[in-house]
Write a protein that binds this DNA or RNA. Structure first.
Lengths: 203, 203
DNA sequence: AACTCAAACTTGACACTGTAAAGATCAGAT
DNA sequence: ATCTGATCTTTACAGTGTCAAGTTTGAGTT
């Protein structure tokens, strides 16, 4: 085999990263129940007990996957913002579009990052990743904060709205209520919701 | 043993109901990972393979628990509405309060009923239970539908808002962002959000 | 250059899980 | 009284997480 420029610490190369990638692939392919320590190990070409040396059990692996998931989640929002218009409302819509897109395209991963243990039990890296992702949404909300009001009000409104819509849409809960909601397209639907919510700043 | 007025079909009495209750108890006590076919069977005092005659595997039990969960969910909303004021806005607030209360008091069950397979794969009973619960929220939204507008718009706004808030709050995601959000009390916080959302009917 | 030794990984085992097959039990109908 | 089918048990098997040992590897030390 030709030498690889990347250093290979000991045996595998970078087993920790490989296991995280294997886990995300398993989630994408087979849903949340397909995420298994032994299957991740098999994909990475190591024995079933190898992951124990890199993560604190299955919960630890899920935490590490959640951290990477938040990174991808943030990227999804940033990408959508980049292709949106250059005014404040379009930027906010872009962020929310990226939020929803991520949920639709990665349902199991979306479920994982928002169903992990309460933040209080998170390790520091995961806490940072979460706040880092939320910061993107936070920024986009800033122009719509009425003067003298705590930004947390609008932020919580928008976050709850787009999160609830994404979660319910992902679970297919809007379908049986009103099939036309699905037909008209999820992006357009949530955008019309934002139109009513994100009113101009000066009251 | 003294005879019980309730008829006991064959051996157990009503194993199906007992297994569902055992499952809900397990969820409440130990979280989602504690829900196990074998543990449910043990609680009901039957062998580990007995549940297979009443549910289609673990997925079937989860579906049945979800159906019962939606019934309790609906009751939570109705109870909260009953103790609310008698005007339209207070009724809507009451419903949402019941929504959030249920999520806070039964996090694992809340997670289950909204994370089950997409509705399209639900059995008919579960579909009905879901729509039946949503109908409560739907009714409370009716007074706030602007004339000439499709009710689905307001319904989706309110549903997404209260669901997203409940889901994020339940997962403890508001804590690290702004601890004061927790301190001031979740009910008050979500109510102030509704004040801004539920504007009077006639535009 | 040989040694040391700790990290990375493997092997084997155990308890627990879901699921299937086959047998036992029992209530009610014939 | 017997039959029948639903209910439940027993047994077995593959897959899972986790622990306790042993083995390999490679980097640093002397």
């Amino acid at each position: 085999m030709t030498d690889t420029p990347i250093q290979k610490p000991h045996h595998h190369g970078d087993l920790r990263a490989a296991l995280i990638q294997a886990g995300i692939a398993l989630l994408t392919e087979g849903g949340k129940d397909s995420l298994t320590l032994r299957k991740c190990a098999a994909r990475a070409g190591v024995s079933h007990a190898a992951p124990a040396h890199h993560f604190d059990g299955l919960a630890g692996l899920r935490g590490a996957i959640a951290q990477e998931g938040f990174r991808l989640f943030r990227l999804s929002m940033l990408e959508a913002r980049a292709t949106a218009g250059d005014n404040d409302l379009n930027r906010l819509k872009g962020i929310c579009s990226g939020y929803l897109n991520f949920a639709i395209q990665n349902p199991a991963l979306f479920d994982l990052i928002f169903s992990a243990a309460p933040m209080s039990t998170f390790e520091e890296g995961l806490k940072q990743g979460t706040s880092f992702a939320y910061e993107v949404l936070r920024e986009a909300c800033a122009p719509f904060v009425p003067v003298g009001q705590d930004p947390i009000v609008i932020e919580t409104q928008v976050w709850s709205l787009i999160h609830g819509y994404s979660h319910l849409y992902m679970a297919g809960r809007f379908g049986p209520i009103d099939p036309s909601m699905q037909a008209r397209g999820p992006i357009d639907a949530v955008m019309s919701l934002l139109d009513g919510l994100a009113t101009p700043p000066k009251a």
